[in-house]
Design a protein around this nucleic acid. Structure first.
Length: 586
RNA sequence: GCGCCUGUAGCUCAGCGGAUUAGAGCAUCUGACUUCGGAUCAGAGGGUCGGGGGUUCGAGUCCCUCCAGGCGCGCCA
């Protein structure tokens, strides 16, 4: 078994890198920046003229208003300044608005509204720029170079190698995978890693080895009983069967201790293979599988403890060695080495995090399951005790998954819903639906997975709804080509024919994509993508109802084909970012 | 007892560092197909944003407190 840590991060070859070749202007940012500059210039002019008396320039924020009657963008800067100036916000807003237009070419109209908002209406040709850009950038559209030159190691799933990947871990997998995609899209070099909790002294692993050993002996007719806390799962018997089939009874006569050690090893190997396959069929692949055991074997754990002692953050008490994590805000100090001489999980995890930093990553992200929030403080403390800035480590905790079928909570015997094997879920609803549903809620919320809905092939099922939009677009483009209408080149098309409100709404949504990526990536919020994808699909369907593409005048058909093409690009990009297929036919 | 997460429409949930009249899907009711995929679309009803204080010109959003639910608090991992 080879899961030696790869000491040097290598470029990720298994996933597309979203790093663009040349400088990329993010559209949303571009327009926002222009508007910010326009407002700032207006403010400075007003200040010079004595219209507005302020000491320092405020930070100008540009928002997308909730309602489109309020324009394309708006700012609340006048309300922010109201207190300092001591004048009504609307009056200040008017003074700024009067000076804004002369500073910017994309603004069509400026309006003061509400409590003192300045609403901006953009010139229509700005939307044409969006379409041009999407065609120009294709699958790179939406990516940015914001974090170019930075690297991040994302650790996720990291289950014990003693069973199949569960639905709960699957949620972590989907989140980790898509967050990784997002981080790549904003310029990070991303390294995806699975930490194998395979320490030999771990009770879980020993217990697993014993259970496998018992199943093996039972299959060979020996009268041995499973330990009460043993692993009852069917898969343990299957692994034992495989061993009997391959090796027969050759382990029966070994000393019991040796036999258990051997079966722990063989079991782990089998489970890692199983887990890799489970994850692969779920669309997840790692750059590296990092074995906890190797940390002990290479004495990195020992060295790490020595280092902590030297730094004064590890001490001996009652025959054990403790981490002084309270020095960094943890509730209590934590045991690093038990009085029987065996290092704890935390000791290994500390060494592991040190190793991650030593490998040269700028940032670390751990995607952890619901039961690990208590470990954030101690892990950060350990990192800080070793002299690393704990702010370079982020931990994303996600909540439990519950499976529902026909309104009933699914229980597997006595097991919780999130202990159902991921494979069973994927077999039942498919990879695309499984991923979409597991991504659908914010990580902070527990997730109720509706199996019936996920299987449904109707618009009620969001993943079908979104994929249907993509298939529908593909169908239009296909039909255009079949009927001899060539897909025009953007430069040959008169985009000023794109004027219908449904067309404009669609384009505006397309223009949001770079901003959506940026926010979802920097806040580690992959669930935003599911919402964005359904919004985009909905706007396409509205457009489809209102605007015919084929059979209009050649010029209008050409313009709409270009728009439809752009929608397809973005829809495919969103689905691709989520690891979900974008079918041309369904 | 301490810590983390959650509490928004009948249900499942969005609501970004506070801001113009709180949103979506489902469910309910009413509508739309001789033409590009009806696996679609339109309209209607439905909310004291768990309660109470506070900060603010302005709070679902920030602070405090209480209540309810989930999950953690090991010389287990």
């Amino acid at each position: 078994m080879t899961h030696d840590p790869d000491r040097h991060p290598t470029p990720n070859t298994q996933h597309p890198t979203y790093i663009p070749d040349g400088p990329v202007q993010v559209i949303l940012t571009m327009v926002k920046d222009e508007l910010i500059r326009a407002v700032e210039s207006a403010l400075e002019d007003a200040k010079k003229a004595g219209d507005i008396r302020i000491k320092e320039m405020p930070e100008v924020e540009i928002d997308v208003p909730r309602k489109k009657e309020f324009g394309d963008y708006s700012t609340n800067v006048a309300m922010v300044l109201a207190r300092e100036i001591g004048a009504p916000p609307r009056e200040i807003a008017q003074r700024i608005a009067d000076r804004v237009t002369e500073h910017n070419g994309v603004i069509d109209k400026v309006q003061v509204a509400g409590a003192g908002f300045i609403n901006f209406y953009l010139k229509p040709d700005w939307y044409h720029q969006v379409i041009l850009r999407i065609h120009d950038q294709g699958e790179r559209y939406g990516t940015s170079e914001r974090f170019i030159g930075q690297s991040i190691l994302v650790e996720y799933v990291s289950a014990n190698p003693n069973g199949p990947i569960t639905v709960g871990s699957g949620r972590g997998g989907a989140i980790g995978d898509v967050v990784s995609n997002l981080l790549e899209a904003v310029g990070y070099r991303v390294f995806r890693e699975y930490y194998i909790n395979d320490a030999l002294n771990s009770l879980q692993m020993q217990n697993f080895g014993k259970s496998l050993e018992v199943r093996y002996l039972q299959l060979l007719g020996h009268d041995v009983k499973m330990p009460e806390d043993g692993y009852q799962g069917e898969y343990v018997i299957q692994v034992a069967k495989d061993i009997v089939e391959r090796d027969g009874d050759k382990y029966v006569h070994l000393p019991k201790e040796d036999r258990i050690a051997l079966f722990t090893d063989m079991g782990e190997y089998a489970m890692l293979e199983l887990q890799k396959a489970d994850l692969e069929d779920f669309g997840i692949a790692f750059d590296n599988w990092y074995s906890e055991r190797t940390l002990h074997e290479s004495s990195k754990v020992t060295k790490c403890i020595e280092q902590l002692k030297e730094r004064g953050y590890a001490y001996e008490k009652e025959g054990a060695i403790w981490l002084r994590s309270t020095a960094f805000g943890d509730d209590k100090d934590r045991t690093l080495v038990r009085s029987n001489g065996q290092p704890t999980y935390i000791a290994a995890d500390t060494a592991y995090h040190a190793d991650k930093f030593e490998r040269g990553f700028n940032r670390l992200l751990n995607v952890w399951g619901p039961h690990h929030h208590g470990y954030i403080a101690r892990t950060k403390a350990a990192v800080a005790a070793l002299g690393y800035d704990p702010n370079r480590l982020d931990v994303l905790i996600f909540q439990v998954v519950r499976l529902f079928s026909g309104g009933e909570l699914v229980m597997m015997s006595k097991r919780r819903g999130d202990l159902v094997p991921l494979r069973e879920l994927v077999d039942e609803v498919g990879k695309d639906a499984a991923r979409f549903f597991l991504l659908m809620r914010s990580a902070d919320s527990s997730l109720d997975f509706d199996l019936e809905l996920a299987k449904q092939q109707s618009s009620e099922n969001p993943v079908y709804y979104v994929q249907y939009a993509h298939a529908r677009i593909s169908s239009i483009l296909r039909q255009a080509e079949e009927s001899g209408v060539p897909i025009p080149s953007v430069s040959d098309v008169d985009l000023s024919l794109i004027t219908h409100p449904s067309e404009i709404d669609l384009v505006k949504k397309l223009s949001d994509w770079p901003g959506e990526i940026d926010r979802a990536a920097t806040a580690y919020e992959p669930h935003r993508l599911t919402a964005y994808s359904t919004d985009l699909a909905a706007l396409f369907h509205v457009f489809y109802r209102d605007c015919r593409v084929l059979g209009e005048s050649p010029e209008l058909t050409a313009a709409r084909l270009v728009l439809v093409q752009a929608a397809r690009v973005v829809l495919a990009n969103v689905l691709g970012m989520m690891g979900i297929s974008a079918p041309e036919k369904m």
